[in-house]
Amino acid sequence: MGSSSRRNTMSDVTIIGLGPMGSTLARTLLKNGTNVTVWNRTREKAEQLIREGAEFNPEAAAAVSASPIVIVCVANYEASHNILGSHEVAKNLEGRLVVELSTGTPQDARNSETRVREQGADYLDGAILATPAQIGMPDTPIFLSGSEAAFRRSEPVLKILAGNLIYMGEAVGAASAWDLATLATTFGAMFGFFHGSRILESEGYRVDSFGSMMADISPVLGQMIKYEGEIIQTGAYENPQSSVKTCRGTADLWLKQALEAGINNEFPTFAMGLFNKAKAAGYENEELAAVMKVLR
């Protein structure tokens, strides 16, 4: 469908940014019968989407005007602001709903909401907890926060992209905060997995088997995390199931094994640093979650 075929009609959604995620968002909407306008700084990334039925507009201002809902998925909020904040684009935002799916901090979200609302548009902030390959699946999660009216208005479109929409409330920074917290947990686990993989490699074992085993026991690990979260929230660190002292002994073993096997010891050294601070602060006989008091 060429750029002239719907020249005088509104599309349902405009997608700003055609990186791997933005392109997948557009393609998923198209496959589900949604009329989509796309914009990217270069037309090259839009060519395949045009062939699949998207409307491409080379001017960001016109692309924003083309739809009542504008989904922005670019590298970061600065890039988003550079696009939406230009005079020509900003004056076309009135009456639109901007759904920001770029990556940033809670303060980025608050700043973005202020700027967009100053232009007469509604605003919803979101964070996609998935890879492009997972877009469109019934269990794919997206955190969303901001105006509830904006959420309800965009919900039918966003449900096409992710079946598990998680609305975090009116505080617009919530989606980003929960996203960053989730990513911290994910990458913390990943770095631990990488160190564990080096332990097994040093003993001649298969890492893929290790990955499969971790997947199988992940519900148990999830319950451990849930328990520590409850301890932190209540502040009941006494009568530990797993004390700081016991867990610090595990870090000692990581370091000992790393020295014996001659493998990288950065992960256990980092962990030992926190354990040592907790010990020095007198938390050694409290629940592992007492390390949180060191971080505070």
Rank of each mutant, 00 (worst) to 15 (best):
A62Y: 04
V74N: 05
L200T: 07
A127G: 07
G222Y: 10
T42K: 13
T182W: 11
A181C: 12
A133Q: 15
A75Q: 11
D216N: 15
G146Y: 12
V89Y: 09
A215V: 14
E201G: 10
Y77P: 05
A271I: 09
F210V: 08
S23F: 08
L49I: 01
A121M: 03
H81Q: 12
S23Q: 13
S5D: 15
G188E: 05
Q223T: 02
F275Q: 01
H81M: 06
G104Q: 04
S3Y: 05
L144P: 14
Y227N: 09
H87W: 03
Q134N: 11
A174C: 03
L124E: 12
R7D: 10
R117Q: 15
Y227I: 00
M10D: 15
D108F: 02
K245S: 12
A130K: 01
S243N: 11
H81D: 13
G17Q: 07
I50F: 01
L29Q: 04
A46P: 07
A133N: 14
V294K: 06
I15D: 04
E284W: 05
Y77D: 02
A130N: 08
E59P: 00
N82V: 03
K277C: 06
T28Q: 10
D216C: 04
V291C: 07
Q257G: 03
R110Y: 07
E284T: 00
G2N: 15
H195W: 03
F143E: 00
Y123A: 01
D122S: 14
Y237E: 03
F193C: 06
T9V: 09
F270H: 13
L200R: 01
E170T: 12
P219D: 13
Y283E: 06
K256F: 09
A75Y: 13
E148D: 09
Y227W: 11
G95I: 03
A133E: 15
A280C: 08
G188P: 10
E113F: 04
F270R: 06
G17P: 13
V72W: 08
G196T: 01
R51V: 00
A271L: 12
A280E: 15
D12R: 05
S3I: 06
K279G: 02
T234L: 06
V172R: 03
E284A: 14
Y283N: 12
T234W: 08
V294N: 06
D122V: 00
F270T: 11
N8V: 10
I160C: 01
L124D: 10
S80V: 02
P68S: 11
G85V: 06
F193S: 09
G262T: 01
L158M: 10
F267T: 09
V36W: 06
E55T: 07
E47H: 10
A90S: 14
V70I: 08
S242E: 14
